[in-house]
Simulated scan of single mutants.
Amino acid sequence: MSKNILLICGSGASSGFMAANMRKAAKKSGLDYKIKAKSEAELADYANDIDALMVGPHLKAEFDAIKDRVPSNVKVILMKPDYYSILDGQGAIDHLKSELG
Rank of each mutant, 00 (worst) to 15 (best):
S11F: 00
D45Q: 14
G12H: 09
A20K: 15
S11K: 04
S14E: 07
K28M: 15
N73M: 04
A41D: 04
D88R: 10
E40R: 03
I8G: 02
S15R: 03
M18R: 03
S85N: 08
M79D: 03
N21T: 09
N21Y: 09
L7E: 06
M18P: 07
Y33G: 11
I5A: 10
S14K: 04
K36V: 10
A13N: 13
G10S: 02
G56K: 03
L43G: 07
K80R: 14
D68N: 13
N4A: 10
A92T: 09
P81Y: 12
S11L: 05
A52P: 10
Y84A: 05
A37E: 09
K80W: 10
E99K: 14
I77L: 02
Y46I: 08
Q90S: 10
D68W: 08
V74A: 04
G91H: 06
P71Y: 09
D94K: 15
A92G: 07
G10Y: 01
V70D: 05
G56S: 04
Y84W: 13
M22T: 08
G56E: 05
A26R: 05
K34W: 15
E62V: 01
D94R: 11
G16Q: 09
A65Y: 07
L53Y: 01
M22S: 10
V55R: 01
N4V: 09
A61W: 11
I77P: 02
L78F: 00
M18G: 07
V55K: 01
N21S: 13
L6H: 01
P57C: 09
A37W: 08
I66L: 04
V74T: 04
S39Q: 00
Y83V: 07
K36W: 14
E42R: 00
L78Q: 03
N48A: 13
D45V: 06
I8V: 15
A47I: 07
I5R: 04
M18V: 12
N4S: 11
P71S: 12
V74D: 08
L31H: 15
G89D: 04
I77C: 02
A44M: 14
I5N: 06
M54R: 00
F17S: 14
K27Y: 13
S98G: 10
Y83R: 06
M22A: 09
A92Y: 05
Y84L: 10
D82C: 07
